[in-house]
Amino acid sequence: MVQRGSKVRILRPESYWFQDVGTVASVDQSGIKYPVIVRFEKVNYSGINTNNFAEDELVEVEA
């Protein structure tokens, strides 16, 4: 279970941040499909630095 402030590695192959490390900004408990919002240092092609992920697409590298 990841929690706010954890450092996580992204396992979603189609993601711009695949294999990159980001910080968990928040975790939604309402039961949505992609409840974990992760914030990154670098921006993607659209200038965005956050994205939603499912918990099984993340691996915690640092608490």
Rank of each mutant, 00 (worst) to 15 (best):
residue 1 M to P: 11
residue 1 M to Q: 13
residue 1 M to N: 12
residue 1 M to K: 15
residue 1 M to Y: 11
residue 1 M to R: 15
residue 1 M to W: 15
residue 1 M to T: 14
residue 2 V to E: 01
residue 2 V to I: 15
residue 3 Q to F: 06
residue 3 Q to E: 08
residue 4 R to A: 14
residue 4 R to T: 13
residue 4 R to P: 15
residue 4 R to I: 15
residue 4 R to W: 06
residue 5 G to A: 01
residue 5 G to N: 03
residue 5 G to P: 03
residue 6 S to Y: 09
residue 6 S to I: 07
residue 6 S to T: 13
residue 6 S to H: 07
residue 7 K to Y: 09
residue 7 K to A: 05
residue 7 K to H: 08
residue 7 K to L: 14
residue 8 V to K: 06
residue 8 V to P: 02
residue 8 V to L: 00
residue 9 R to D: 05
residue 9 R to F: 07
residue 9 R to Y: 08
residue 9 R to V: 09
residue 9 R to M: 11
residue 10 I to F: 04
residue 10 I to P: 04
residue 10 I to D: 04
residue 10 I to R: 04
residue 10 I to E: 03
residue 11 L to F: 03
residue 11 L to Q: 05
residue 11 L to P: 05
residue 12 R to M: 04
residue 12 R to Y: 05
residue 13 P to H: 08
residue 13 P to T: 10
residue 14 E to A: 10
residue 14 E to W: 13
residue 15 S to P: 01
residue 15 S to K: 01
residue 15 S to F: 05
residue 15 S to V: 03
residue 15 S to Y: 04
residue 16 Y to H: 05
residue 16 Y to G: 01
residue 16 Y to R: 01
residue 17 W to M: 01
residue 17 W to L: 02
residue 17 W to T: 00
residue 18 F to C: 05
residue 18 F to N: 01
residue 18 F to D: 01
residue 18 F to V: 03
residue 18 F to G: 00
residue 18 F to E: 00
residue 18 F to Q: 01
residue 18 F to S: 03
residue 19 Q to C: 13
residue 19 Q to E: 08
residue 19 Q to S: 07
residue 20 D to G: 05
residue 20 D to R: 07
residue 20 D to L: 12
residue 20 D to F: 10
residue 20 D to Y: 09
residue 21 V to L: 10
residue 21 V to N: 00
residue 21 V to C: 09
residue 21 V to G: 02
residue 22 G to R: 00
residue 22 G to A: 01
residue 23 T to Y: 08
residue 23 T to M: 09
residue 23 T to Q: 07
residue 23 T to I: 13
residue 23 T to N: 03
residue 23 T to R: 04
residue 24 V to T: 02
residue 24 V to W: 03
residue 24 V to A: 01
residue 25 A to H: 11
residue 26 S to I: 07
residue 26 S to Q: 09
residue 26 S to K: 10
residue 27 V to G: 02
residue 28 D to N: 08
residue 28 D to I: 09
residue 28 D to M: 11
residue 29 Q to H: 13
residue 29 Q to C: 12
residue 29 Q to E: 11
residue 29 Q to I: 11
residue 29 Q to M: 13
residue 30 S to I: 04
residue 30 S to V: 04
residue 30 S to W: 04
residue 30 S to Q: 06
residue 31 G to Q: 10
residue 31 G to I: 11
residue 31 G to D: 12
residue 32 I to L: 10
residue 32 I to K: 10
residue 32 I to E: 09
residue 32 I to W: 07
residue 34 Y to I: 02
residue 34 Y to A: 04
residue 34 Y to K: 07
residue 34 Y to C: 09
residue 35 P to F: 11
residue 36 V to C: 04
residue 36 V to W: 09
residue 36 V to E: 00
residue 36 V to A: 01
residue 37 I to T: 15
residue 37 I to K: 15
residue 37 I to Y: 10
residue 38 V to R: 00
residue 38 V to D: 01
residue 38 V to T: 00
residue 38 V to Y: 00
residue 38 V to N: 00
residue 38 V to E: 00
residue 38 V to K: 00
residue 39 R to E: 12
residue 39 R to A: 09
residue 39 R to M: 13
residue 39 R to H: 09
residue 39 R to D: 02
residue 40 F to V: 00
residue 41 E to Y: 06
residue 41 E to T: 10
residue 41 E to M: 07
residue 41 E to G: 06
residue 41 E to C: 12
residue 42 K to C: 11
residue 42 K to P: 01
residue 42 K to W: 08
residue 42 K to H: 09
residue 44 N to M: 06
residue 44 N to T: 07
residue 44 N to S: 09
residue 45 Y to I: 12
residue 45 Y to K: 15
residue 45 Y to A: 15
residue 45 Y to H: 15
residue 45 Y to P: 15
residue 45 Y to G: 14
residue 46 S to P: 05
residue 46 S to N: 14
residue 46 S to R: 11
residue 46 S to V: 11
residue 47 G to P: 03
residue 47 G to V: 02
residue 47 G to D: 04
residue 47 G to N: 05
residue 47 G to Q: 04
residue 47 G to C: 08
residue 48 I to H: 14
residue 48 I to D: 13
residue 48 I to L: 13
residue 49 N to H: 07
residue 49 N to I: 05
residue 49 N to Y: 09
residue 50 T to V: 12
residue 50 T to P: 01
residue 50 T to F: 14
residue 51 N to M: 15
residue 51 N to Y: 12
residue 52 N to P: 07
residue 53 F to D: 02
residue 53 F to P: 02
residue 53 F to G: 00
residue 53 F to V: 00
residue 53 F to N: 03
residue 53 F to R: 01
residue 53 F to K: 04
residue 54 A to C: 07
residue 54 A to M: 07
residue 54 A to I: 03
residue 54 A to W: 04
residue 54 A to Q: 07
residue 54 A to L: 04
residue 54 A to D: 08
residue 55 E to G: 06
residue 55 E to N: 11
residue 55 E to Y: 15
residue 55 E to A: 12
residue 55 E to Q: 13
residue 55 E to F: 15
residue 56 D to E: 10
residue 56 D to F: 12
residue 56 D to V: 07
residue 56 D to R: 07
residue 57 E to D: 06
residue 57 E to I: 03
residue 57 E to R: 01
residue 57 E to M: 03
residue 58 L to N: 02
residue 58 L to M: 07
residue 58 L to C: 07
residue 58 L to Y: 03
residue 58 L to A: 01
residue 58 L to H: 01
residue 59 V to I: 12
residue 59 V to A: 12
residue 59 V to D: 09
residue 59 V to N: 07
residue 60 E to F: 11
residue 60 E to W: 09
residue 60 E to H: 10
residue 60 E to T: 13
residue 60 E to M: 14
residue 60 E to N: 09
residue 60 E to L: 15
residue 60 E to R: 11
residue 61 V to N: 05
residue 61 V to Y: 05
residue 61 V to E: 06
residue 62 E to P: 13
residue 62 E to C: 13
residue 62 E to M: 11
residue 63 A to T: 13
residue 63 A to M: 12
residue 63 A to I: 11
residue 63 A to R: 12
residue 63 A to V: 12
residue 63 A to N: 12
